[in-house]
Structure formats: C-alpha cells, structure tokens
Design a protein around this nucleic acid. Structure first.
Lengths: 164, 164
DNA sequence: CCACATTAAGTAACTGGTTACGCAAATATA
DNA sequence: TATATTTGCGTAACCAGTTACTTAATGTGG
C-alpha cells in the first residue's frame, strides 16, 4: 500500500480520519443517487429518532446526536423539502418546533430500511478483522470529551518548556 | 456517557468518524489561532513533504496524500498567500508548477515544529490505551481501498435479495 | 507531421459540517 | 410587575473537502 499518511503514524492520523470519513460520506451519497433514492447520509439517524419518539425538537435532536443545532436545522429543512418531515409549533412554548415523520416517510421506510440494513452489514464486514476497534474508538472519544485536542496540546507544550 | 451514536453501534460509526474528525480539525484551528500562529491544519504535511523533496508538483502531492488535486491547489494557494511557498513553472514541462518552501518558511519552521511535536504527543496520548487502533484502522482503510462502501453495500443488497 | 489522447493544474459549484450573531419567547429575579 | 437572563431556532459567513469542467501543454500513432 505504501501510504504516506500511514507512514507518518501519529502525525497522519487526523488526516486519515478525515479521509476515511469523507470517503464513506461520498460513497453513501453516490449509492443513494445511483439507486434513485431520495435520501441522504445521516437521515437514517433522524428517521430512527422520530420513530422512537414520535415528536422531537431541533434542540433535542442536536443534543442527542451531538451535532451543532444549525447542522440539524439544515438536515431537517432538506427532509421537509423532500416531504419526509412536517413541523408544527408547540402550543405551550411557541419557540419550539415539533418535528414528526410524514405519511410519505412512513410509507417509504421499508425501502429505505433495506439499504440501511445493507449499509450496516457493510460496516460489520469492515470491522470484522478489527475486534477492538469500536471499544478503542470509544476510548479516544471519551478522552477528547474530557479535554480536547487544543487543551491537551497546549499542556504538552507547557510541560515540554518546563523540562528544558 | 450514554451517546446515542455509540448505542447505534455499526449504524452510528460513520457519523462518529465525521464528528471526531471535525472536532480534531476545529480544535487544531483554534489552537493555532489562539497562539497567533499563521498556519492551518494539514500544512505540516506539506512542510514535511517539501523538506524531504525540495520541489514537488501539485499532482505529486495530491497522489502522495491521496487528496483530490483541487484540495491541494487550495492548500497551496493559502500557503503561497502566507509566503510559505513559492512556485515556478517547470522549464521542461510548462504545465507543471514546481513548489518550494520559501526562506520565511524555513525560518519559521522551528517554531511550528514545537507545536507539531506537541500535537503528535497529544495523538500518542489519545491512543495510549488503544494499542490495536492504528493497526485495525489500517485494515479498514485497506478493505475500503479494495472495494468501497457503495460497492460493498450494493453487493450486500443483492445477496440479501437472493436469499429470500 | 498532424490529429487525437492524455496529463497538469486551475475554476466553479456543491456538501456537510462549524462558529457567531440575532430575535422572539419563556423564565428568573429584583 | 418590570427587567434581566436564558432558551430555541433561524441565518450568515466560513471551512475543508469533493466532483465536474476547462484550458493548455505534452505525448503518441497512422
């Protein structure tokens, strides 16, 4: 294979994460497009959430997914335009938009689910020879949750200065 | 922690990869900004390549990093604007732009390197409790290199149909 | 030697994220 | 009860990537 970023070890990892994440994203979009499906990556998550909960608000979804709320707004707007989601204003709290799946969405779900199941299978296959991956990936996320890349790096810098 | 995407297991992984990759990216940018450094994420890779090779072309870099060539064009344009890179046209092949580090770049390198070393340390720390991570991550990349997400998922779909 | 194919690099339009800001509604406080 | 704070969500501007297209230079086969 002989990949430069891999040879860089720790230095190349963040770029490899981006590269992998992008490649999955674009490949998923291409899949849906080539199959003529009117959905996009991440929509499966919204579908799952709105099946579980009937109605949710933008803020609830953004907290659940740990995405910024403008990101969720964008996704939801697209899903509304495609007729998969409808909104109504909460009568008790007029700031809140209550989101629900439309009839159309429920009708199309079985078809979508075939693709999502196949995609899930793909990820399983990709991870088949990597039995520690999910567990170790979680550890990294948890570490970064406690102290992010910037803070950790600044601390390393300071320690390094002191040791001179 | 109780993270929805984590609970989704295989289904949530691609979004978690994006989330992690983004968080590292933005945190790195913030680090450079807060320290008043006039560099951006990924530039370290270009610096390393141009120290090793003296001159390279856009295409060579994009092949080495496995980024699309427009991505490299954008990075290089920024580095040129910041005075870190200069270009001259190859006399043998006037399509090629030969890239080299400027005097200014060489002068600032030692400062940058302090930060890059600290960042490398951060990644090492993040991976400290995940001894199989790099190895298993590579396996995933290699699998996707042989057949991408779309093709694998389409194949899974077909198999599934046949088994019914 | 000329027509055609390939290659290098630049540009445009788009994508899914982000932060920063603003506004209106709800809540807390003096 | 009036005022200050917080909350929900929408919008703008940005960011680092992508694909698709263009142009110019080079390489190649009849």
């Amino acid at each position: 294979m002989n990949d430069f970023l891999t040879e860089m070890e720790y230095v190349g990892l963040t770029s490899r994460l981006k590269r992998l994440s992008d490649s999955l994203l674009y490949s998923t979009k291409e899949l849906y497009k080539s199959e003529g499906l009117d959905i996009e990556p991440n929509w499966n998550l919204i579908f799952i959430l709105l099946q579980e909960n009937e109605t949710m608000t933008i803020t609830e979804i953004s907290e659940t997914l740990q995405f910024s709320h403008p990101a969720v707004v964008k996704i939801i707007n697209k899903m509304k335009k495609n007729g998969h989601i409808e909104t109504r204003t909460d009568t008790k709290d007029k700031r809140k938009q209550l989101l629900t799946l439309t009839e159309k969405a429920h009708k199309q779900l079985p078809v979508f689910e075939k693709y999502w199941t196949a995609g899930r299978k793909t990820v399983m296959d990709l991870l088949a020879d990597s039995p520690h991956f999910l567990e170790e990936f979680l550890k990294i996320e948890e570490k970064l949750n406690q102290s992010d890349y910037k803070d950790r790096t600044l601390k390393n810098l300071k320690n390094d200065e002191h040791s001179n």
